[in-house]
Protein backbone atom coordinates (compact mmCIF):
# COMPACT_ATOMS: atom_id res chain seq x y z
CA UNK A 1 0.00 0.00 0.00
CA UNK A 2 1.16 3.42 -0.90
CA UNK A 3 1.09 6.10 1.71
CA UNK A 4 1.33 9.67 0.56
CA UNK A 5 3.63 11.06 3.19
CA UNK A 6 2.95 14.65 2.28
CA UNK A 7 -0.75 14.16 2.65
CA UNK A 8 -0.40 12.49 6.01
CA UNK A 9 1.71 15.38 7.17
CA UNK A 10 -0.79 17.90 5.93
CA UNK A 11 -3.67 16.09 7.56
CA UNK A 12 -1.81 15.99 10.84
CA UNK A 13 -1.13 19.71 10.68
CA UNK A 14 -4.77 20.36 9.85
CA UNK A 15 -5.81 18.17 12.74
CA UNK A 16 -3.65 20.16 15.09
CA UNK A 17 -4.97 23.42 13.71
CA UNK A 18 -8.59 22.45 14.23
CA UNK A 19 -7.92 21.24 17.74
CA UNK A 20 -6.42 24.60 18.54
CA UNK A 21 -9.24 26.43 16.78
CA UNK A 22 -11.99 24.59 18.66
CA UNK A 23 -10.19 25.16 21.94
CA UNK A 24 -9.75 28.86 21.20
CA UNK A 25 -13.46 29.20 20.45
CA UNK A 26 -14.37 27.42 23.70
CA UNK A 27 -12.07 29.69 25.67
CA UNK A 28 -13.54 32.71 23.89
CA UNK A 29 -17.09 31.57 24.75
CA UNK A 30 -16.33 31.16 28.39
CA UNK A 31 -14.31 34.35 28.63
CA UNK A 32 -17.37 36.47 27.83
CA UNK A 33 -18.61 36.09 31.38
CA UNK A 34 -15.32 37.52 32.62
CA UNK A 35 -15.56 40.36 30.08
CA UNK A 36 -19.13 41.15 31.15
CA UNK A 37 -18.28 41.26 34.85
CA UNK A 38 -15.04 43.20 34.35
CA UNK A 39 -16.48 45.92 32.13
CA UNK A 40 -19.74 46.39 34.03
CA UNK A 41 -17.66 46.56 37.23
CA UNK A 42 -15.21 49.07 35.80
CA UNK A 43 -17.94 51.33 34.46
CA UNK A 44 -20.20 50.82 37.49
CA UNK A 45 -17.53 51.66 40.03
CA UNK A 46 -16.25 54.75 38.21
CA UNK A 47 -18.83 57.24 39.63
CA UNK A 48 -17.63 56.46 43.18
CA UNK A 49 -13.95 57.03 42.51
CA UNK A 50 -12.36 60.40 43.29
CA UNK A 51 -11.77 62.47 40.20
CA UNK A 52 -14.90 61.21 38.42
CA UNK A 53 -15.60 63.75 35.68
CA UNK A 54 -19.27 64.42 36.53
CA UNK A 55 -18.75 64.72 40.28
CA UNK A 56 -17.98 61.85 42.62
CA UNK A 57 -20.95 60.00 44.16
CA UNK A 58 -20.74 58.78 47.73
CA UNK A 59 -20.77 54.97 47.72
CA UNK A 60 -22.31 54.56 51.17
CA UNK A 61 -25.23 56.90 50.51
CA UNK A 62 -25.70 55.23 47.13
CA UNK A 63 -26.01 51.79 48.67
CA UNK A 64 -28.14 52.80 51.65
CA UNK A 65 -30.14 55.71 50.22
CA UNK A 66 -33.91 55.73 50.22
CA UNK A 67 -34.45 58.39 47.54
CA UNK A 68 -33.70 58.05 43.83
CA UNK A 69 -34.23 61.26 41.90
CA UNK A 70 -32.27 61.74 38.71
CA UNK A 71 -33.67 65.26 38.34
CA UNK A 72 -32.12 66.31 41.67
CA UNK A 73 -29.01 64.22 41.33
CA UNK A 74 -29.87 62.06 44.35
CA UNK A 75 -29.05 58.44 43.77
CA UNK A 76 -29.88 55.97 46.51
CA UNK A 77 -30.51 52.36 45.62
CA UNK A 78 -30.88 50.91 49.14
CA UNK A 79 -34.67 50.89 48.96
CA UNK A 80 -34.58 49.64 45.39
CA UNK A 81 -32.57 46.60 46.47
CA UNK A 82 -35.15 45.89 49.18
CA UNK A 83 -38.00 46.34 46.66
CA UNK A 84 -36.33 43.95 44.24
CA UNK A 85 -35.83 41.32 46.92
CA UNK A 86 -39.40 41.71 48.19
CA UNK A 87 -41.05 41.43 44.79
CA UNK A 88 -38.95 38.45 43.69
CA UNK A 89 -39.43 36.64 46.99
CA UNK A 90 -43.21 37.20 47.11
CA UNK A 91 -43.44 36.01 43.50
CA UNK A 92 -41.61 32.84 44.52
CA UNK A 93 -43.94 32.37 47.51
CA UNK A 94 -46.96 32.46 45.18
CA UNK A 95 -45.45 30.50 42.32
CA UNK A 96 -43.57 27.80 44.24
CA UNK A 97 -46.50 25.76 45.65
CA UNK A 98 -48.48 26.07 42.44
CA UNK A 99 -45.59 24.93 40.27
CA UNK A 100 -44.65 22.00 42.52
CA UNK A 101 -48.26 20.81 42.53
CA UNK A 102 -48.47 21.23 38.76
CA UNK A 103 -45.21 19.33 38.33
CA UNK A 104 -46.49 16.52 40.52
CA UNK A 105 -49.69 16.47 38.48
CA UNK A 106 -47.78 16.25 35.21
CA UNK A 107 -45.18 13.74 36.39
CA UNK A 108 -47.29 11.39 38.50
CA UNK A 109 -51.00 12.05 38.80
CA UNK A 110 -52.44 13.08 35.41
CA UNK A 111 -53.53 10.50 32.83
CA UNK A 112 -51.00 10.19 30.01
CA UNK A 113 -52.75 12.40 27.45
CA UNK A 114 -53.64 15.12 29.95
CA UNK A 115 -50.06 15.06 31.21
CA UNK A 116 -48.69 15.62 27.71
CA UNK A 117 -51.15 18.45 27.13
CA UNK A 118 -50.21 20.12 30.42
CA UNK A 119 -46.54 19.77 29.61
CA UNK A 120 -47.20 21.61 26.36
CA UNK A 121 -49.00 24.36 28.27
CA UNK A 122 -45.97 24.82 30.51
CA UNK A 123 -43.64 24.85 27.49
CA UNK A 124 -45.77 27.46 25.75
CA UNK A 125 -45.77 29.64 28.87
CA UNK A 126 -41.99 29.32 28.92
CA UNK A 127 -41.79 30.41 25.28
CA UNK A 128 -43.79 33.62 25.75
CA UNK A 129 -41.31 36.53 25.49
CA UNK A 130 -41.11 38.81 28.50
CA UNK A 131 -42.32 41.87 26.64
CA UNK A 132 -45.51 40.01 25.74
CA UNK A 133 -46.01 39.22 29.42
CA UNK A 134 -45.54 42.94 29.93
CA UNK A 135 -48.36 43.79 27.52
CA UNK A 136 -50.56 41.23 29.28
CA UNK A 137 -49.61 42.63 32.67
CA UNK A 138 -50.36 46.22 31.81
CA UNK A 139 -53.59 45.23 30.08
CA UNK A 140 -55.00 42.57 32.40
CA UNK A 141 -53.05 42.22 35.66
CA UNK A 142 -53.26 45.95 36.40
CA UNK A 143 -57.01 45.71 35.89
CA UNK A 144 -57.22 42.81 38.33
CA UNK A 145 -55.13 44.73 40.87
CA UNK A 146 -57.36 47.79 40.50
CA UNK A 147 -60.40 45.62 41.08
CA UNK A 148 -58.89 44.01 44.20
CA UNK A 149 -57.88 47.44 45.48
CA UNK A 150 -61.38 48.76 44.95
CA UNK A 151 -62.71 45.96 47.16
CA UNK A 152 -60.61 47.46 49.96
CA UNK A 153 -61.62 50.96 48.97
CA UNK A 154 -58.10 51.87 47.83
CA UNK A 155 -57.29 53.74 44.65
CA UNK A 156 -54.16 52.70 42.76
CA UNK A 157 -52.03 54.37 40.12
CA UNK A 158 -53.89 52.73 37.26
CA UNK A 159 -53.08 49.33 38.71
CA UNK A 160 -49.30 49.75 38.53
CA UNK A 161 -48.19 48.44 41.89
CA UNK A 162 -46.04 46.08 43.88
CA UNK A 163 -48.85 43.51 43.70
CA UNK A 164 -48.94 43.73 39.89
CA UNK A 165 -45.17 43.18 39.75
CA UNK A 166 -45.43 40.21 42.10
CA UNK A 167 -48.26 38.58 40.14
CA UNK A 168 -46.42 39.17 36.85
CA UNK A 169 -43.19 37.67 38.17
CA UNK A 170 -45.08 34.74 39.70
CA UNK A 171 -46.49 33.94 36.25
CA UNK A 172 -43.11 34.45 34.56
CA UNK A 173 -41.10 32.16 36.83
CA UNK A 174 -43.80 29.49 36.91
CA UNK A 175 -42.58 27.60 33.80
CA UNK A 176 -38.97 27.53 35.04
CA UNK A 177 -39.98 26.21 38.45
CA UNK A 178 -42.40 23.67 37.01
CA UNK A 179 -40.08 22.17 34.42
CA UNK A 180 -37.22 21.88 36.93
CA UNK A 181 -39.60 20.22 39.41
CA UNK A 182 -40.87 17.81 36.75
CA UNK A 183 -37.29 16.75 35.98
CA UNK A 184 -36.54 16.28 39.68
CA UNK A 185 -39.71 14.29 40.39
CA UNK A 186 -39.17 12.03 37.36
CA UNK A 187 -35.63 11.33 38.55
CA UNK A 188 -36.80 9.89 41.87
CA UNK A 189 -35.70 6.28 42.28
CA UNK A 190 -38.73 4.02 41.54
CA UNK A 191 -37.51 1.61 44.23
CA UNK A 192 -38.33 4.22 46.84
CA UNK A 193 -41.87 4.57 45.56
CA UNK A 194 -42.39 0.84 45.37
CA UNK A 195 -41.11 0.43 48.91
CA UNK A 196 -43.60 3.03 50.07
CA UNK A 197 -46.44 1.33 48.19
CA UNK A 198 -45.41 -2.06 49.56
CA UNK A 199 -45.58 -0.69 53.07
CA UNK A 200 -49.24 0.09 52.45
CA UNK A 201 -49.15 3.78 51.58
CA UNK A 202 -51.59 4.85 48.90
CA UNK A 203 -50.37 6.13 45.52
CA UNK A 204 -51.23 9.73 46.49
CA UNK A 205 -49.49 9.45 49.84
CA UNK A 206 -46.42 8.12 48.07
CA UNK A 207 -46.51 10.96 45.56
CA UNK A 208 -46.75 13.65 48.19
CA UNK A 209 -44.59 12.19 50.92
CA UNK A 210 -41.96 10.18 49.09
CA UNK A 211 -41.57 11.75 45.66
CA UNK A 212 -41.64 15.37 46.81
CA UNK A 213 -39.26 14.66 49.69
CA UNK A 214 -36.83 12.78 47.50
CA UNK A 215 -36.98 15.44 44.79
CA UNK A 216 -36.66 18.45 47.04
CA UNK A 217 -33.07 19.18 46.12
CA UNK A 218 -33.93 19.44 42.43
CA UNK A 219 -37.07 21.42 43.18
CA UNK A 220 -35.03 23.84 45.25
CA UNK A 221 -32.57 24.24 42.37
CA UNK A 222 -35.53 25.29 40.25
CA UNK A 223 -36.49 27.87 42.88
CA UNK A 224 -32.98 29.34 42.77
CA UNK A 225 -33.15 29.59 38.99
CA UNK A 226 -36.61 31.14 39.18
CA UNK A 227 -35.48 33.76 41.70
CA UNK A 228 -32.58 34.66 39.42
CA UNK A 229 -35.00 35.20 36.59
CA UNK A 230 -37.26 37.29 38.81
CA UNK A 231 -34.41 39.62 39.84
CA UNK A 232 -33.26 40.16 36.27
CA UNK A 233 -36.61 40.53 34.55
CA UNK A 234 -36.60 43.97 33.01
CA UNK A 235 -39.01 45.19 30.36
CA UNK A 236 -42.15 43.49 31.62
CA UNK A 237 -41.56 44.62 35.20
CA UNK A 238 -40.79 48.18 34.11
CA UNK A 239 -44.20 48.34 32.41
CA UNK A 240 -46.12 47.85 35.67
CA UNK A 241 -43.71 48.96 38.41
CA UNK A 242 -44.50 52.67 38.29
CA UNK A 243 -41.00 53.80 39.36
CA UNK A 244 -41.50 55.29 42.80
CA UNK A 245 -38.95 57.93 43.79
CA UNK A 246 -38.50 56.85 47.40
CA UNK A 247 -39.17 53.78 49.43
CA UNK A 248 -39.02 50.96 50.22
CA UNK A 249 -42.52 49.87 49.19
CA UNK A 250 -44.35 47.48 51.50
CA UNK A 251 -47.92 48.36 50.58
CA UNK A 252 -48.95 45.95 47.79
CA UNK A 253 -51.12 48.60 46.12
CA UNK A 254 -48.43 51.28 46.07
CA UNK A 255 -46.12 51.73 43.09
CA UNK A 256 -42.63 50.32 43.44
CA UNK A 257 -39.24 50.46 41.76
CA UNK A 258 -36.90 47.58 41.04
CA UNK A 259 -33.26 47.59 39.99
CA UNK A 260 -34.16 46.68 36.42
CA UNK A 261 -36.98 49.22 36.10
CA UNK A 262 -34.53 51.85 37.34
CA UNK A 263 -32.05 50.86 34.65
CA UNK A 264 -34.71 51.24 31.97
CA UNK A 265 -36.15 54.55 33.19
CA UNK A 266 -35.55 57.52 30.92
CA UNK A 267 -32.96 56.48 28.37
CA UNK A 268 -32.62 59.85 26.73
CA UNK A 269 -29.01 60.60 27.65
CA UNK A 270 -26.00 58.65 26.40
CA UNK A 271 -23.26 60.25 28.47
CA UNK A 272 -22.94 61.77 31.90
CA UNK A 273 -23.67 60.60 35.41
CA UNK A 274 -27.26 59.55 34.66
CA UNK A 275 -25.90 57.18 32.07
CA UNK A 276 -22.99 55.81 34.08
CA UNK A 277 -25.08 55.30 37.19
CA UNK A 278 -27.08 52.66 35.29
CA UNK A 279 -23.95 50.54 35.21
CA UNK A 280 -23.65 50.95 38.96
CA UNK A 281 -27.26 49.79 39.33
CA UNK A 282 -26.48 46.89 36.97
CA UNK A 283 -23.49 46.01 39.09
CA UNK A 284 -25.69 46.03 42.20
CA UNK A 285 -28.06 43.68 40.34
CA UNK A 286 -25.22 41.28 39.56
CA UNK A 287 -24.08 41.36 43.19
CA UNK A 288 -27.63 40.80 44.48
CA UNK A 289 -28.09 37.79 42.18
CA UNK A 290 -24.68 36.41 43.13
CA UNK A 291 -25.24 36.66 46.88
CA UNK A 292 -28.80 35.38 46.68
CA UNK A 293 -27.60 32.34 44.69
CA UNK A 294 -24.72 31.77 47.07
CA UNK A 295 -26.91 31.82 50.18
CA UNK A 296 -29.61 29.68 48.59
CA UNK A 297 -27.05 27.15 47.39
CA UNK A 298 -25.82 26.80 50.96
CA UNK A 299 -29.40 26.29 52.11
CA UNK A 300 -29.86 23.77 49.29
CA UNK A 301 -26.84 21.78 50.43
CA UNK A 302 -28.29 21.62 53.92
CA UNK A 303 -31.72 20.54 52.66
CA UNK A 304 -30.26 18.14 50.15
CA UNK A 305 -28.25 16.20 52.72
CA UNK A 306 -30.95 13.61 53.34
CA UNK A 307 -32.36 13.84 49.84
CA UNK A 308 -31.85 11.17 47.20
CA UNK A 309 -32.48 12.83 43.84
Amino acid sequence: MLIDKKRVKRNKALDKFFRGFFMAMAILSSSFIVIIVLFVCAKGISPFLPGYEYGQVDLISFLTGSIYRQDQGIYGVGFIIINTLISAFLALVISFPLSVLTALFIAKIAPKKLSAAMQSVVELLAAVPSVVYGVFASGVITGVVEWIASLFGITTFGGSSLLAVVLLLAIMIFPTLTSMSITAIRAVDPNLEQASLALGATKTQTNFKICLTAAKSGIFAGAILGLGRAYGEATAVAMVAGNKLFGPTFNPFDITRTLTSTMLAGLKETTGLDYDIRFSVGLVLIVVIFFSNWILNMVKKRIGRNSVA
Binding site: F32, I33, I36, V40, R229, Y231, A234, T260, G282
Partner: peptide, 17 residues
Protein backbone atom coordinates in the same frame (compact mmCIF):
# COMPACT_ATOMS: atom_id res chain seq x y z
CA UNK B 1 -18.44 26.75 34.21
CA UNK B 2 -17.88 30.04 32.41
CA UNK B 3 -20.30 29.08 29.66
CA UNK B 4 -22.88 27.79 32.14
CA UNK B 5 -22.70 31.02 34.10
CA UNK B 6 -23.58 32.98 30.95
CA UNK B 7 -27.04 31.35 31.06
CA UNK B 8 -27.85 33.01 34.37
CA UNK B 9 -26.84 36.54 33.37
CA UNK B 10 -29.96 38.74 33.03
CA UNK B 11 -30.44 40.03 29.51
CA UNK B 12 -30.34 43.65 30.62
CA UNK B 13 -26.75 43.10 31.79
CA UNK B 14 -25.88 41.81 28.32
CA UNK B 15 -27.16 45.16 27.08
CA UNK B 16 -24.82 47.03 29.42
CA UNK B 17 -21.93 44.89 28.23
Amino acid sequence: QGIDTLTGVPSIVYGLM
